[in-house]
Amino acid sequence: MTESTDWPLWEVFVRSRRGLSHTHAGSLHAPDAEMALRNGRDLYTRRNEGVSLWVVPSAAITASSPDEKDSFFEPAGDKPYRHPTFYDIPEGVKHL
């Protein structure tokens, strides 16, 4: 009764309006990119949620490993001087 479809998984990104970046909305299965776009439209933009849609094969995404998330992002951890709030500025100094 069940035939395995084995359609690839696609990640769907929606740009909600011009000027904003595409944001990950979810994923879906589709046999090809064109069908993924159509399904993505039907599934994620039924209420004008978007003006543009990207679909990306999930298999094409390389992700960092959650197990090493601490060490992977560690280099930025000890560099608070990269933030403007790190610096003490005398009161009364303007436009800085």
Binding site: P8, L9, E11, F13, S21, H22, H24, G26, S27, W54, V56, S58, A59, I61, T62, A63, S64, P66
Partner: peptide, 21 residues
């Protein structure tokens, strides 16, 4: 380019659903 940038800044979200495979 944009996808790449998005991935670097928000890896957890982007990969969330990709795990199915």
């Amino acid at each position: 380019q944009a996808v790449q940038a998005g991935l670097t800044s928000r890896p957890a979200q982007t990969t969330a659903a990709g795990e199915a495979t």
